[in-house]
């Protein structure tokens, strides 16, 4: 059975979560715990790199839905990058691209954070 692996690394002041595997109702709690931990440490500038994410179901999207307001209210954001077309399609079906910054490359997410800050 495929699982979800999360690799956490720091790029400058940004928290990057690399997701690999499948994000569904079985694995969503793993991502949720990681996000909760970051938020409790007041780390609000989060980039989720989905390059190795093969699959997402709505339980996975639900994690992003549940925490985005908390993160934004503290001046941060969750930006998503490097999605494969199948994963992007699920976000798109629910209209997420108008509500979240979803970019092709991780560097673009960093640039967007820097633009947000200078505004």
């Amino acid at each position: 059975m495929k699982n979800l692996n999360i690799n956490h690394r720091k790029v400058e002041t940004y928290e990057v979560l690399e997701l690999a595997g499948e994000l569904d109702a079985h694995t969503a709690s793993k991502l949720e715990n990681t996000l909760k931990q970051l938020i409790s440490q007041k780390k609000h500038q989060i980039i989720v790199n989905c390059e190795e994410l093969d699959y997402i179901a709505s339980a996975g999207l639900g994690v992003f839905m549940a925490y985005i307001e908390d993160v934004r209210s503290m001046g941060g954001d969750i930006k998503l990058s490097n999605m494969n077309p199948k994963v992007y399609n699920v976000f798109d079906l629910l209209g997420f691209p108008t509500l979240y910054d979803i970019v092709q490359k991780e560097e673009q997410a960093i640039q967007k954070f820097q633009t947000d800050e200078s505004e």
């Binding site: 999207l61 639900g62 839905m65 307001e69 079906l93 629910l94 509500l99």
Partner: peptide, 22 residues
């Protein structure tokens, strides 16, 4: 209403909608 659900910090509730779209 995804925007409203996000504002209310609610997750999920979109499975039935997705099934109908798919």
């Amino acid at each position: 209403d995804i925007l409203k659900r996000i504002k209310d910090k609610k997750r999920g509730g979109v499975g039935v909608y997705l099934i109908q779209k798919l």
